[in-house]
Design a protein around this nucleic acid. Structure first.
Length: 487
RNA sequence: GGUCUCGUGGCCGAGCGGCUAGGCACCGGUCUGCAAAACCGUUUACUCCGGUUCGAAUCCGGACGAGACCUCCA
């Protein structure tokens, strides 16, 4: 830990902010539920990944050595949607008339591309479910041995009633089993389950299944929750520091993960459970089923019908980090525009910082400003406060530029370094790269010079014609004290 | 129906008992041939009704409104 501040994390398990104490001094193990690759992740999915990327970066900034595991679900969950068992990946594969692996591979390539576009640091490990079938089987065997699961007709179910005799089912979600609605669903699996709250650890293969694995109970597929238990255990141990995911995974997915971990190893897998809140569109959760979603690529390309113009990924990322990860965030074009302006202000502040001239004396308060930034990070990863403190810094940079404040060379160096660390390192915001088109800039230099000559001769009609003409071409002319620039 | 969360100025969003973030927009100013840009300054707020307190956006109770989960979901 290089920070003077103490890291505090909101733990979903206790519902409180808690002082963060890692299991192994400076090492942190973090597991985050990744995407299911039966389709392209939408913007809402990306928000969660951006938030945990920010959290990862914060932990790194604080000096922790972080092992960050984010799984890739490439085995179809056997779900109970509308009373039917559906293998989402298999379904997508059948409708595209390709093999499951092709679906998974296609979307994985897209997902990896999105990670680059949105500047997500690669996790330490991105394990896939299909590469860990054996590990999943072993965990299931352990749960059976401990008496918390039973085998029925080639399938294995977690025995919630047996589990409840020794453990608390519902510890995370706050649910009580007898309060769970006992809808009389006519499910295939309902007949096999001893109790309605029991969930599948292993499902017997259906004839139409495209992916099938051998197990001690016959051919089948792993249940929805077991992959996370198997992979988190393999890479982080039976218990690790942080488990994250979207809020909508809290129940049943994370609750069942806890049950599986306790049922096999006798402990909750994670000491700190973190849940990222949802991205809303018009006050409603963005989701596939509602159809109110758009893709992370569409917003960058400007092909989403929800917006009239494209937004750079860095702006979208910045917009998302202006809200705290535990709050819902409403995405609108107006809000995005506001963030874009703010983003540019921050970026221009940063580039101005590089051009400042140092003085022999210093009225340096940068340390104070940046201490606030660090305090924000330590207070449950409060990105909006962090950003606010950076805007304070920008204001300070302008004051130096205008000669109202002074900085020594040494302070300037430190200040520049700190700002770069917070903006690029922690927030993960890269300055927008202007396409440096040599031919265009050559032409523009000439055009600007021509306009400058016209202005010097007070030939306003010519200079305005050039300005208006460029504006039509989408180029804005900016007349500063020291000359004219364009963008 | 059950469980839970949330209602902050024109918009997005922090704060969560006294110090009333931040961004955008608006308005005023500096600059400018004019404009834009840039910079500086400023206005506008805590859904409603009770209660606790010297003091509440912040705690408690109620009303109204919105959302999430209970089924796959980030």
């Amino acid at each position: 830990m290089k920070s003077d501040h103490q890291l505090v994390i909101y733990n979903s398990l206790s519902g409180k902010k808690e002082i963060f104490v890692p299991l192994h001094s400076d090492h942190v193990g973090m597991y985050v539920c990744g995407p299911t690759l039966y389709s392209e992740p939408h913007m809402g999915n990306m928000r969660t990944f951006i938030n945990f990327d920010f959290i990862y970066r914060c932990l790194l900034y604080l000096g922790y050595q972080v092992k960050y595991v984010r799984n890739i679900t490439d085995a179809g969950h056997i779900t109970n949607s509308a009373g039917q068992e559906v293998d989402s990946i298999g379904k997508a594969a059948r409708s595209a008339q390709v093999q499951s692996l092709e679906i998974v591979y296609t979307y994985n390539v897209k997902f990896q591309e999105l990670q680059r576009i949105y500047n997500l640091l690669p996790p330490t490990i991105e394990p896939t479910a299909t590469a860990h079938i054996q590990e999943q089987i072993e965990v299931i065997e352990q749960i059976i041995e401990n008496g918390y699961a039973y085998v029925v007709n080639g399938s294995v179910y977690f025995d919630v009633k047996a589990y409840m005799q020794h453990h608390n089912y519902g510890a995370l979600s706050g649910r009580k089993v007898d309060e769970l609605e006992q809808e009389t669903r006519t499910l295939n699996a309902q007949d096999e389950k001893r109790f309605f709250a029991d969930f599948a650890l292993w499902k017997k293969a259906n004839p139409e299944d495209m992916q099938v694995w051998r197990s001690p109970w016959g051919n089948g597929n792993p249940g929805w929750h077991i992959e996370c238990t198997a992979m988190s255990t393999k890479y982080l141990g039976k218990q690790f520091d942080i488990h994250g995911g979207g809020l909508d995974l809290k129940f049943p997915h994370h609750e069942d993960e806890i049950a599986q971990n306790c049922g096999s190893f006798g402990c909750n897998p994670a000491r700190y459970w973190m849940h990222a809140n949802m991205l809303n569109v018009n006050g409603q959760k963005m989701s596939k089923s509602l159809g109110n979603y758009f893709l992370p690529k569409e917003i960058v390309d400007g092909t989403s019908t929800l917006f009239t113009k494209p937004f750079p990924a860095a702006v979208v990322r910045f917009f998302m980090l202006q809200a705290h990860y535990r709050s819902t965030l409403d995405i609108t074009e107006e809000a995005l525009n506001a963030s874009e302006k703010g983003f540019e202000r921050l970026m221009e502040g940063l580039s101005l910082l590089e051009k400042l001239t140092p003085s022999s004396t210093s009225s340096f308060e940068g340390a104070k400003v940046l201490s606030a930034a660090e305090a924000a990070i330590c207070d449950d990863f409060n990105a909006p406060i962090l950003i606010a403190s950076l805007f304070d810094a920008v204001k300070y940079i302008h004051a130096i530029n205008e000669g109202k404040e002074h900085l020594t060379q040494e302070d300037l160096l430190w200040f520049t370094q700190a700002m770069t660390t917070f903006v690029q390192g922690v927030l993960g915001i890269e300055p927008s790269k202007k396409e440096e088109n040599q031919r265009l800039s050559g032409v523009m230099d000439m055009v600007i010079t021509l306009r400058q000559q016209a202005r010097e001769q007070k030939d306003w009609s010519t200079s305005d014609m050039i300005r208006d003409g460029l504006a039509k071409a989408g180029i804005q002319v900016k007349d500063n004290k020291d000359g004219t620039s364009w963008s």
